[in-house]
Design a protein around this nucleic acid. Structure first.
Lengths: 251, 251
DNA sequence: TAGTTTATTTAGGTATACCGAAATTCTAAA
DNA sequence: TTTAGAATTTCGGTATACCTAAATAAACTA
């Protein structure tokens, strides 16, 4: 796949098209793309035609837009750039998480491949960013850890936190405060009645914090990679009584 | 001085205008500007009009171009960006000197002020880049070390190397090999006959290397900040006899 | 299924930053 | 001081990536 000379607009378009399908399957439509890019629908129609001319997308008029292998490859390289930059800014330049996005957005179009690889080396070639989003390697390969959103897991599952949505900064602070970080082990105890949230057992390297109640918004922000099923099934106690939190396997 | 929203083209234009007068006084002309930017003369005419509209330059038709205080301020901020970026790429990301220029050229337009200040902090707020070119501070102030090019100094002057031109990469390697770096102390012994170069006494932290002969190209690539006049005058020995190199003051 | 609403594309137009060619102004030599 | 040549500007034109408004296609709905 020869790297086409791509304008920074092309890069933004394929990146947004890719991002839409990263965590679900429905392909993106023209108007959603326009909204996400902050441009008019007509601009998207025109640009999608150009992207198609360059072989970056498949598109029939009035239909959703799909990336071609070439477009996917470009998108993955942009995702790699973005997430490595974010990781670098946080780890090496002391950025806070809410400061990195816009900066990375600019830089991802400006830095050379050489810069990206130096940065990756300095960081020890990480395969995920500080919130667990996967960083594709230079060939576009993603180290996928099969995982599920906490709200999709049944009681009894034991998992390691593999991704934390960075959507809500306040929630991010809450997780940190509760000792919930990447690779923290959780036991899914059960869902609270009336959609009030989830109850989980929690164990970190430093302490065995016992049961923890997470609101619905918090539960949909955490992804767990399965560590195994807990054998002795855990009884849900929605009334708030004391819960046995079984000892979980170490990492 | 309110920071105007400036396009990356404006930034390039003022940077080149400034660079032309950094080490001499003659103002830049339209065609020289065009050559340095790699654009047509007609493009310069048009852009200079726009720069004038923005209050960045003074210009009468058919005359050379001068920066206004506002233009100077923008130019200095671009120089700061460029030199901090080059320093950072070399010191923190293991770039070689010939790799940094193009990368910095791109990045200087893309990074935020915040990024620049984080970088500066990480580097310990340097006032010069690895070759001694001054890095303006965030207010545009330059820490000027009064210095002269080696070929402009008379025998007897003792100076610290304060700048090494990065024009010729080969020469750069030669200097390194000879132990000539920033802050190396030199005694100007004298000019060789027939413009064949200069002879200098040299002393580094590690060794007292004695007399050294530099070609004319090497001599115009080194700037010296005066450390003082050597009292006992040094006799020039163009025939190649042994030379007394007096002990020089420490840093 | 006809009609309305929504989604998408087309058509015409803007700003930026470039170009080559032609016209203008300056400079310097005869 | 006139004029050839060089430097500079003006003029018309290009590509990119936007825009609004109008036209068209698709999707509902009654």
């Amino acid at each position: 796949m020869k790297p086409t000379a791509t304008s920074s607009s092309f890069e933004d378009y394929v990146k947004v098209i890719y991002a839409y399908t990263e965590w679900q399957d429905k392909p993106i439509t023209s108007s959603v793309l326009a909204t996400r890019l902050g441009v008019a629908n007509s601009s998207v129609s025109e640009m999608v035609r150009k992207l198609k001319d360059q072989g970056l997308v498949d598109h029939q008029p009035y239909s959703p837009i799909h990336l071609t292998p070439k477009g996917l490859s470009l998108a993955l390289s942009m995702v790699r750039r973005h997430r490595l930059l974010e990781t670098y800014l946080v780890n090496e330049l002391g950025y806070t998480w809410d400061e990195v996005h816009d900066e990375a957005e600019q830089l991802e179009h400006a830095v050379s491949d050489h810069f990206i690889e130096r940065m990756s080396a300095k960081l020890g070639h990480p395969f995920r960013d500080p919130h667990g989003d996967p960083i594709p390697d230079a060939q576009g390969q993603i180290a996928m850890v099969p995982s599920h959103r906490l709200d999709e897991l049944d009681p009894g599952h034991v998992g390691r936190i593999s991704r934390i949505s960075d959507h809500d900064p306040e929630l991010l602070r809450y997780f940190e405060q509760q000792g919930l970080g990447l690779d923290t082990e959780l036991l899914v105890v059960g869902q609270l009645p009336f959609g009030a949230g989830w109850q989980v057992g929690l164990r970190t390297a430093t302490h065995d914090a016992g049961p923890l109640t997470l609101g619905p918004d918090a539960a949909v922000s955490l992804w767990l990679a399965s560590v195994g099923q807990h054998a002795g099934c855990c009884v849900q106690e929605p009334t708030g009584g004391t819960l046995m939190v079984p000892h979980m396997s170490g990492l």
